[in-house]
Design a protein around this nucleic acid. Structure first.
Length: 253
DNA sequence: AAGGAACTCAACCGCCCCAGG
DNA sequence: TCCTGGGGCGGTTGAGTTCCT
């Protein structure tokens, strides 16, 4: 969307780190007035920054809902998967990883995962090349191993006919929800008790999630690491977005 | 304890796309 | 149709921090 009038381009814009005061001004302004033309934001908010700088600061740091913590194993796996599928499409990755900005993902990739991935590739290429010495088309073995190693997680991203996990952090609803589109897994949320119960399979196994343990990444990690559900398969699960929740709880007209 | 290397992360830069005039 | 400006994105930089010797 384009702004209706241009602004004075001769204004000297401040650069560098943002002060807490600037953060407060920007946050207050956007929370009060909403997102509009970024060029007007610094003017109206009383900031000596340019619009781009404000946008960046908002999307990467001030925007509500950002996790801003260490990447979990599951998130790292997801980044690896998405990078395998999408390449350096950081913004697309961030759209599929709620709570993480494209900048955060990009930084994490360059600082850590790139090396980790290269190392993984190295060992895989070595082992597959020795295994497939007598096989044809060994030239694309690294590509194959790459796609196969990423395949399981890639499935997770796809939206298909999968059972659903209802992620309590994204819920602000008072009522208890049950989304048992599958017999295998359903998640119940009751904000009144500030606890989330997860039942698995026949419902024999239950786990209590404390209120501070409800972020998506921790939730996934707990399932993986503590082996809560023996038959739990991440490939059969997809996360629900707020839109999903809305459409699920709103009768179609 | 010191200093250099490696790492992290916030922010800037420059390019591209698109819509409005 | 062309020009202009805003928004979005990926690449890069550099200051600050942590680690290692």
């Amino acid at each position: 969307m384009q702004c209706k009038s241009s602004l004075n381009q001769n204004v000297k814009h401040k650069k560098g780190l943002w002060s807490p005061d600037e953060d407060k001004k920007l946050k207050d302004y956007i929370l009060n007035h909403g997102l509009g033309c970024w060029s007007f934001v610094p003017v109206n908010a009383g900031l000596q920054r340019n619009g781009k700088s404000c946008r960046l600061r908002w999307t990467n740091y001030l925007r509500p809902g950002l996790k801003r913590g260490k990447f979990t194993k599951h998130e790292e796996q997801k980044i690896l998967t998405l990078h395998g599928k999408l390449g350096n499409k950081w913004s697309e990755m961030s759209r599929q990883m709620p709570g993480r900005s494209d900048n955060e993902i990009k930084n994490h990739w360059h600082s850590y995962l790139k090396k980790k991935y290269a190392k993984l590739e190295n060992t895989k290429t070595k082992s597959t090349s020795s295994d497939t010495l007598n096989e044809q088309s060994s030239s694309d073995s690294s590509l194959k191993s790459r796609s196969s190693s990423l395949e399981s997680y890639s499935k997770e991203v796809d939206i298909g006919i999968r059972p659903k996990i209802l992620f309590s952090e994204w819920l602000s609803l008072d009522q208890c929800h049950t989304l048992d589109t599958s017999d295998e897994l359903s998640i119940y949320h009751a904000s009144s008790s500030q606890q989330t119960n997860m039942s698995c399979g026949s419902g024999e196994k239950h786990v209590q999630l404390s209120p501070e343990l409800v972020s998506e990444n921790e939730f996934y990690d707990m399932i993986f690491e503590e082996n809560v559900c023996p038959d739990f398969n991440i490939n059969d699960v997809r996360m629900l977005t707020c839109d999903d929740l809305y459409s699920a709880s709103t009768p179609s007209i």
